[in-house]
Computed example of a mutant assay.
Amino acid sequence: MPDDFSKRGEFHKPTLFSGAKFDGLEGGDDPARVLRVAHESARALLSRARDAGDPEVVDRLVRYTDEHGLDALAELWARSGPHTLPGALWRLYLVRLLIHQDPAGVSLLFQRGTEVLPTIDPVVAGAPIPAGPDEVTDLADRILRGVFEGDFPLALDRAAAFCRVTAAGASSVADDQDAASPDRASELTTRALRLTTTADELSACARLARDGALE
């Protein structure tokens, strides 16, 4: 996944956000005004959710892209830098949408990742083992809820861990597919690279958030 995820014109409402789009998104430069709006809107969204203290408000924010697609969020946040508040929120919504639109495929990659990755990332991500489609879908929602309910750095760390585990799974499955289906193997390798990049970006955002420096 590149630093800037999308061009506004790539999205339609409601957006069906395929794995191929996740792997190949590109971005452009941000005018100063758009950048300012991105940062102000991200801060306002978090403040609204936390000040309201209302689970229904949080539910609506988590489900926002289910009803409206990515158009509005793309316009606000998609071109923000990867180590910014709007950039972090954008990546969290993208990861959630990727999971929701292919829970079976993502759960397969995540489960493989838990089997081949010798780190504590599966524990940090917080998914049960084994994790099927329902479990990874629930995890995506719980991570995003954590953003709005208080512990933003932890939510970022959990999302980063999920991406690392899924990336490891994608790499492992790609190795299995290399001889029989080289095109599929190449697709999975690209997915793994994008997920690894996203994991690194989210981890960096978590560190900044803990230092009070994620703007």
Rank of each mutant, 00 (worst) to 15 (best):
L94H: 07
A168Q: 03
A170R: 05
G169S: 04
A180T: 05
D141T: 15
E115G: 01
A104Q: 13
F162V: 06
V123Y: 14
A185E: 11
A161W: 14
L109E: 08
A160P: 00
A170M: 00
A180C: 10
T114R: 01
A179W: 12
L109V: 08
A174P: 09
G105F: 08
G146Y: 01
A209M: 07
G150H: 08
R194T: 10
D178W: 15
A160E: 06
R184K: 15
S172W: 04
T119H: 11
S171A: 13
D176Y: 10
F152Y: 03
D178I: 09
D175I: 08
R96M: 12
G132P: 01
L109T: 04
G169H: 02
G105K: 12
R194H: 10
R207Q: 13
C163G: 10
D134Y: 12
L85M: 05
T84G: 04
V165S: 06
D200L: 12
A192Q: 04
G126Y: 07
L156A: 04
A167M: 08
L97R: 14
L108V: 02
L92D: 01
A168E: 03
W90G: 05
T166C: 07
W90C: 12
R207H: 11
E135G: 01
D134N: 07
A125W: 11
I99W: 06
L108G: 03
P182Y: 14
P86L: 13
T189N: 13
G105A: 10
C205G: 02
I120F: 14
R112I: 11
L94Q: 09
G146T: 08
L208T: 05
A161R: 09
T84K: 05
Y93R: 15
F110N: 07
A167W: 08
F148M: 04
D102F: 05
L98P: 00
A104L: 11
A131L: 09
D121W: 11
E187M: 09
A204P: 07
A104V: 12
V165Q: 03
